[in-house]
Design a binder for these strands. Structure first.
Lengths: 220, 220
DNA sequence: AAAAATTTTTAGATTTACCTAAAAATAAAA
DNA sequence: TTTTATTTTTAGGTAAATCTAAAAATTTTT
């Protein structure tokens, strides 16, 4: 069994490995709000426990067991987020910190029953896929909104940024999950994007457009 | 803010103080599955933080702040137990350990919304009263079943023992919360009690009878 | 009230997850 | 290919929560 801290390291390594091939000590330290020296210590410990493969100065990768553990924590995190939003009426920008605590509750039974209670949801309130109890989940086929061309349309199905500030901003613009959008124009000057959102015209910055994920309906 | 460990000490002291006037180091140690020396260390720390009053060799009492903190943890524990039983279909003998973890999740918002989601329950699945968000709860007027006389009747409204073995035993006998009972006879030989439970005759040992709490309908 | 038993505390260690500062390895630039 | 910069690791230390063994205080028994 792992400590909360160990679980958090595994989760962080898992998420970093989704973006970069080799996960670096400094990246982990930054993510975990700690110092590189502490990361090295912990990585050694995780390696001793067979949860990561580690070669000095070469970064880490999760072992099969380490990856399963990480996926299980991700599953719990996302299920709890669904619970908070669907059952307790939290907003999508309010759930992260609480789920960060709830994800460490150790009870297989609890999570299976929660999953059932929630109706076996496939995605969390931010559109991130929820692994099933065997750790399997569909590799989602998202496109960043920024990559769409003028005239393309699609449905908002996720975000790649979970900060409260960002999510509140989207909410205010009406850009929530499930909404249909169409690209009207891309401004040369600043790269901002003109979107058609159910008759309304909405302008979003390039920075915002980068973090909205679309399941495309193809070209117009 | 307190660590999980500190919270557990406060909760333990609170529960012990319900039974004995002055809470002793050894009693805390036994309850917490730790050694008296460790308890002394922790008590000093809690005293420094103003959560308990402590005089060497004289035991501890909770301060106002300490008590409020303890009651808040009890509230969270009991609300989570209701959630587990009412919403996730756990049995009353399966919820204690999970609630023991959930009670430490730190989010005022979460607990208030959970309370509302559950319909502001007044008691947990074992009949223990749930403090409201201001820490207030009705002092329940229970009588131990063992104290009833032949001919007395009442309703099972609580238990004073939460072990899975005990609760499973009650379940098997049909002695669950809300059930009406009447005392038919008390056996001279072993002090066991004959109960009338909706037409059926049930015999329970003295030991079991001690831990069943009744809200009495008075004499017959 | 002295002796014996019990309870509680102190002293000194251990483990976990951190830290800082300095050294070593690797990568990038001149 | 040296030099410089960056990244990572090592070495040595700290705070929290625990432990064992021994000393001190309190309570009970004789």
């Amino acid at each position: 069994m792992q400590s909360y801290t160990e679980e958090n390291y595994l989760k962080t390594i898992y998420h970093l490995a989704e973006k970069t091939t080799n996960v670096q000590t400094n990246a982990i330290a930054e993510q975990m709000q700690t110092k590189p020296a502490s990361v090295t210590d912990m990585i050694k410990k995780l390696a001793d426990k067979g949860l990561v493969d580690y070669i000095k100065y070469q970064g880490v990768t999760l072992t099969e067991i380490g990856k399963n553990t990480a996926v299980d924590i991700v599953r719990k995190h996302r299920l709890w987020e669904v619970f908070l939003v669907d059952k307790l009426n939290f907003k999508w920008d309010e759930v992260h910190d609480v789920a960060e605590e709830l994800e460490h509750i150790r009870s297989v039974e609890l999570i299976e029953r929660l999953d059932e209670f929630l109706g076996f949801p496939k995605a969390d309130p931010h559109g991130d896929p929820i692994p099933d109890k065997n750790g399997r989940f569909a590799k989602t086929q998202f496109i960043k909104l920024i990559e769409l061309k003028v005239g393309d349309s699609g449905t908002i199905t996720g975000v790649s940024q979970h900060s409260s500030a960002f999510l509140k901003h989207l909410e205010k613009l009406g850009l929530t999950l499930g909404k249909q959008i169409k690209i009207n124009d891309v401004t040369d000057f600043d790269g901002s994007v003109e979107i058609l959102l159910s008759d309304k015209q909405v302008n979003i910055s390039r920075e915002v457009a980068k973090h909205i994920l679309i399941s495309s309906n193809g070209k117009n």
